[in-house]
């Protein structure tokens, strides 16, 4: 009887797991290494912590936004409202709408805005079961409209100095936003791997029906994921605003798309979290490097757009074909 249930010989099984593990390495790592080598060969003077730090500092808001995006994509949802959230937080901080509020209060208000918008997204998507793409697109449209209306189409004003001061601090020649981003990524990694919520996320992503039958609160998991994504968008808005130093009503429209792109590049697709938290982290770094490489080769903005689109398409195809077979 035991012969009938015997598993394949262990060496074959080992080879299979090795292969399937290799296939699970997020494309972001390859892209990152290729770009780094390219840069090292062509512009060695750029490989320098000060130069790189400046470039990487610019993608810190994107990297923080990605932390939320990867969470919602792992529960088979999506959040395209990041641009609107970042924009409205920039407005609140730079317009002086809250009078002489101190920086601490502004931070709290910004985070509260992010969390509540994320909660609204989550309730509509998780409870109402509305389409995530359209809900978050609509919320984004509304937020952009609200900011433009409040600002009457003009840039609102200046950001309190405290934000810029914190933004420009460096520890061990690493800019503070980069350190903050890395720490936040680490926190998210621990949160997902060591807390029950992470298990819920994995189960809902892998098989929502089985998750339901295992007693996982599927709706609540989706709602929490969106709420955290809102919080991340709020933090991203703070960092972005600090970096700009002024109010603006036209920036970041592509942030959610870039976040989706970096997430997919980092090995996280709808329902699957093979790349973990660090895969998308390197996805964002790859985008930063790509920007550096293309700029140093004199590629115009249009070319950068095309490259970005192609990378998303190729990364998605890579995963699409894998799940197909």
């Amino acid at each position: 009887m035991t012969a009938a249930v015997k598993i394949p010989s262990s060496s074959k099984a080992a080879r299979e797991t090795l292969l399937s593990r290799a296939a699970k390495v997020p494309p972001a790592y390859f892209v990152f290494v290729i770009l780094l080598v390219t840069l090292w060969l062509t512009r060695p003077q750029m490989i320098n912590i000060n130069v790189m730090g400046t470039f990487i500092r610019q993608v810190a808001p994107l990297g923080i936004l990605v932390l939320g995006q990867l969470l919602v994509m792992r529960v088979r949802s999506i959040d395209l409202s990041g641009a609107g959230v970042v924009l409205i937080i920039n407005y609140v901080i730079s317009s002086g709408i809250l009078g002489d509020a101190n920086a601490g209060l502004l931070v709290i208000v910004a985070l509260a805005i992010g969390v509540s918008l994320g909660l609204v997204n989550g309730l509509l998507i998780g409870k109402r079961r509305a389409s995530a793409v359209l809900v978050t697109l609509a919320v984004n449209t509304i937020l952009v409209g609200v900011v433009q209306f409040l600002a009457s189409g003009k840039p609102p004003g200046n950001v309190p100095d405290a934000f810029g001061d914190v933004y420009n601090v460096k520890y061990l020649s690493l800019p503070s936003p980069v350190i903050f981003w890395i720490v936040l990524t680490g926190v998210m990694a621990v949160f997902l791997s060591r807390f029950v919520f992470g298990r819920h996320v994995s189960s809902v992503g892998e098989n929502p029906v089985a998750a339901h039958f295992s007693g996982v609160p599927v709706e609540r998991t989706v709602i929490i994921a969106h709420t955290i994504a809102g919080l991340m968008a709020g933090i991203a808005g703070l960092v972005q605003t600090s970096s700009l130093g002024v109010g603006s009503i036209r920036f970041g429209a592509d942030l959610p798309l870039e976040a989706v792109a970096a997430t997919i590049l980092g090995g996280v697709v709808f329902g699957r979290g093979d790349g973990g938290v660090w895969g998308p982290f390197f996805g964002v770094l790859s985008f930063a490097l790509l920007f550096v490489v293309m700029t140093s080769f004199g590629v115009p903005d249009a070319g950068k757009l095309i490259a970005r689109g192609l990378i998303i398409m190729l990364a998605a195809t890579y995963y699409g074909l894998r799940t197909n077979s």
Binding site: R194, F195, V196, F197, R199, S203, S214, V216
Partner: peptide
Amino acid sequence: FNTSIGLHSSKSELSWA
């Protein structure tokens, strides 16, 4: 994961897995 999810699913999200 498949075995322990039954133990995790009834726990609060913020408890240690």
